[in-house]
């Protein structure tokens, strides 16, 4: 395939999966700016790899996710990144005057609850609950056995529920927030 054709098809691929990459990066970095940097770096690596072995790529999304996960490891090492603060929410100062049921505050609390989870738990929750990967796919993506995926996912969800419960969220309040 001509290089410009490869470039075009890579651009198309990125266009389709960019939001998912951004979401996964956000779950990794907890910060939009860093997440964008991570996605950019991932795309550069992915592009180089795509030019060489585009025919071997069977599941583009899983392939991109894998590159992002590996890039994040390099990224963290290179830039000595620790887990940084979440993006601040503008409504912070107004918290005292609001109700738990308010959607914006719910998402802020959800964000905070996610932040309190360990990064690997956050990634599991994202892959299973948001991006709806099967246990097998997650196991392949993270290079861990399916049993480990299941037990870690169970723990991650339990933790998230507990954290939300601590903040006063119940089934009813969740329904109200919607």
């Amino acid at each position: 395939m001509f290089s410009w054709l490869k470039r075009k098809s890579f651009e198309k691929l990125i266009q389709v999966h960019l939001d998912s990459l951004m979401q996964l990066a956000y779950m990794k970095c907890e910060n939009r700016e860093l997440a964008e940097d991570l996605v950019q770096e991932t795309c550069v690596k992915a592009y180089n790899s795509f030019l060489k072995k585009h025919e071997e790529i069977k599941s583009p999304k899983a392939w991109l996710f894998k590159i992002l996960i590996n890039t994040h490891i390099d990224f963290t090492r290179k830039k000595h990144l620790s887990i940084v603060e979440l993006d601040t929410v503008d409504l912070e100062d107004q918290r005292d005057n609001s109700n738990v049921g308010d959607t914006a505050f719910f998402y802020k609390d959800l964000n905070e609850a996610l932040k309190e989870l360990r990064p690997e738990q956050r990634i599991l929750i994202y892959l299973a609950d948001v991006d709806e990967h099967s246990y097998k796919e997650i196991s392949e993506l993270l290079n861990i056995p399916i049993g480990t995926v299941m037990s870690r996912l169970y723990n991650a969800r339990q933790n998230l529920r507990k954290l939300l419960a601590k903040k006063g969220y119940t089934k009813e309040s969740l329904e109200v927030s919607r």
């Binding site: 990459l21 951004m22 948001v130």
Partner: peptide, 20 residues
């Protein structure tokens, strides 16, 4: 419900137009 909210919340994180 939690799962649905998570989907909405995380799903709302979009790549900026500039990023692409």
């Amino acid at each position: 419900e939690t799962r649905a909210e998570l989907k909405i919340f995380v799903g709302s994180i979009k790549a900026s137009k500039n990023l692409q």
